[in-house]
Design a protein around this nucleic acid. Structure first.
Length: 259
DNA sequence: ATGGTAGCGGTGCTA
């Protein structure tokens, strides 16, 4: 079971590039972020005609997450618990029925800039809500995959120029500590578990020629429960997607599970 | 020190 995560930065602007990548990468499950569409306006037929079941949690203009799956999806859950006033569409879970059943979450963690400030406070609060949701799901002892745009640079080796990020919400010590608290529940970060070399990124800013200068950061991750980590056979990043026509600022990251 | 780009939507916000 190949499970990819891809922040597409707008389904309308990325429709062609997304179709091309899906046809060549052929993930069984594609978790999308920043779809920027209400569910009624999402072009679900495009993906259904490619053999994908489409589950959505979107809103107008901002945020928006989705799970596309060639395998059956069951028990879809939208919204991250813990704050009924939070209207932002950043979390969707579904159980993928493969050789094994795998609970997959597509998540879009708040950016949090500028820090300090209310947006940063919201990021840290959201991360504590996520920690509690992950803890509850770990009680099921099922294979769990939490993938998406974490807006977290976990370590210095995950940025080309870590000094540029010292005061940024993606890299501040409080942000990385909150991320580590989630990992410390017993999760495995799939890409780093299988690939120790630095300099591998999933995001290059549209500004300042970041792509041309390879000034990237690695902020799109798959966190695996112990039962999912036992099934991990491979992980990778589709870097070449960033160099194509009308790219997103993120590229797909993927894992292969024996499931 | 500053401003640079992209998406959405039709202006300024978000990133």
């Amino acid at each position: 079971m190949k499970i990819a995560t891809f922040n597409i930065n707008g389904i309308t602007a990325r429709l062609e590039a997304l179709k091309v990548w899906l046809e060549e990468a052929r993930p069984d499950v594609a978790c999308l972020q920043e779809t920027k569409k209400i569910d009624a306006d999402f072009p679900r037929e495009v993906f259904e005609s490619m053999g994908y079941q489409v589950e959505l949690h979107g809103m107008k203009s901002f945020n928006g997450v989705a799970i596309l799956s060639k395998l059956p999806l069951e028990d879809v859950t939208r919204r991250l618990p813990g704050n009924d006033d939070d209207e932002q569409t950043r979390w969707i879970e579904a159980t993928v029925i493969g050789k094994r059943a795998v609970r997959v979450t597509s998540l879009y963690l708040p950016n949090g800039n500028p820090a300090p400030g209310p947006k940063y406070d919201n990021k840290l609060h959201w991360m504590e809500r996520m920690r509690q949701r992950v803890a509850a799901l770990l009680g099921t002892e099922e294979p769990l995959v939490f993938c998406g745009d974490y807006n977290i640079i976990p370590q210095p080796e995950d940025a080309a120029n870590p000094k540029d990020w010292l005061t940024d919400a993606l890299y501040l010590p409080e942000s990385r500590a909150a991320y580590q608290r989630i990992v410390n529940l017993g999760l495995t970060e799939a890409f780093r578990a299988r690939n120790q070399s630095p300099g591998q990124y999933t995001f290059w800013d549209f500004q300042r020629g970041a792509w041309e200068r390879n000034n990237g950061i690695r902020i799109d991750h798959h966190l695996l429960s112990p039962q999912a980590a036992d099934l991990l056979v491979d992980a990778g990043i589709d870097k070449a997607v960033r160099g194509r026509e009308k790219p997103s600022d993120h590229v797909p990251a993927w894992i292969e599970l024996d499931a």
